[in-house]
Design a binder for these strands. Structure first.
Lengths: 212, 212
DNA sequence: TCACATTCTTACACGGCGCGCAAATGTGCA
DNA sequence: TGCACATTTGCGCGCCGTGTAAGAATGTGA
């Protein structure tokens, strides 16, 4: 769980394979016959596991559809973000942090594109995805709070003002992320998601200006 | 369904009473014993309806917990927003539109405060609430698109740019709404939700400036 | 006041979800 | 090989959400 190049071992490799097989199964079935007509039993049959095992890997059918939680970059990247005070432009730094985050956590390429396709045909999945983002939001909120506290000692002395400001930044950042996601899902196949994230953050700056 | 002062009639009054009784039941039980330990059967017993009737009023247990959909103000208020071009400051106009929207759609006072309390103890309900907001987002997206098209003929000629910009505005506005909600739920009992909405929108302006 | 149409409630049945539990099976390690 | 541990699986259970059809309540006309 800590090391990087430690030879996964058979056990871990099998776990990853099953994890992938389940996601592949649920996405394939969902794109074939529609999300609502897929049962856990079907998924398990395709993925070649027991229905009970399905729930050892995913807490719900929806979770398997929505995919894995987003992770917030490496420790180093987070620390870099927290202590990059002189820059001053938090949004710009957030754009960097989050674009690399989505870059890293796009698991399998095939799954990535399959999910994109299913989301395109079935927009309510964006809502699903939001549910999985709740823990991500919490994590992001913590990191942003630390950054704000490091930036401004005065603000750090006022916990509720700090908290409210961090929360607003978090929610706006997630809004930009959602925007990037949907534009990416609707748009051109070739454009990387990370590029869309940067573009959406750039769009934020134009909102508070008078409309040109 | 159209008129306003048309004497509701017994049928309609009973429907509203049942609607309210169910919400009251689910919120009371949830605050007493925790959200997870409430079954539809329990709710129905307290609300004095059959379990089947419960699902005639709400599509799911979660929906009853999350409460009714938000509505986006009256037709007149919407048209006013769409055609208030000279102002130029869309975010400010959105703040007005949405603060009056939340004002109008706070149903019962008792339910309002009960839900606030349950949300306070059970933060994951904010996620629930988001799910119910999906149709609201769609509606808001339409209205904002119309406003942008009215503001800027050049932008109106480029459908995808228009769409992307409207979507970003929508998601940011919803982010502000979410922020207002959570601050309102966590904070002082007395402050009206509408005031919190305005405050959160005001906070948006400070984000793209350098942190003071 | 009564009969009728309409709407709403209810009971029943059914498939699916999600989880606790314990037995069986597989893997890592000495 | 043999042991310790992790994982998979089958089974059972309670709950969710919906179709259906019968019955009760309500609105409406004469």
């Amino acid at each position: 769980m800590v090391d990087v190049a430690e030879e996964p071992g058979l056990r871990e490799r099998k776990r990853l394979a099953t994890h992938r097989a389940i996601q592949l199964a649920v996405l394939t079935l969902a794109s074939e016959r529609g999300v609502d007509k897929v049962t856990v039993e079907d998924i398990s049959r395709i993925a070649d596991v027991s229905p009970r095992t399905f729930f050892n890997y995913f807490p719900s059918k929806d979770a398997a559809l929505a995919g894995d939680d987003l992770t917030l970059g490496s420790e180093a990247e987070i620390e870099d973000f927290v202590h990059r005070s002189p820059s001053g432009d938090i949004l710009a730094d957030l754009a960097v942090l989050l674009s690399t985050s989505v870059q890293n956590s796009q698991d399998d390429r095939e799954i990535h594109h399959l999910r994109r396709q299913v989301m395109k045909e079935n927009p309510y999945l964006f809502g699903m995805r939001m549910a999985t983002l709740r823990s991500f939001e919490g994590h992001l909120d913590d990191v942003i709070s630390r950054r704000l506290a490091a930036d401004d000692p005065v603000l750090a002395a006022d916990p509720i003002a700090l908290h409210q400001r961090a929360l607003l930044l978090t929610l706006v950042a997630v809004a930009a992320l959602r925007h990037a996601w949907r534009c990416w899902a609707e748009g051109d196949e070739s454009e990387p998601l990370a590029d869309r994230v940067r573009a959406s953050f750039a769009g934020l700056y134009e909102l508070t200006l008078r409309t040109s």
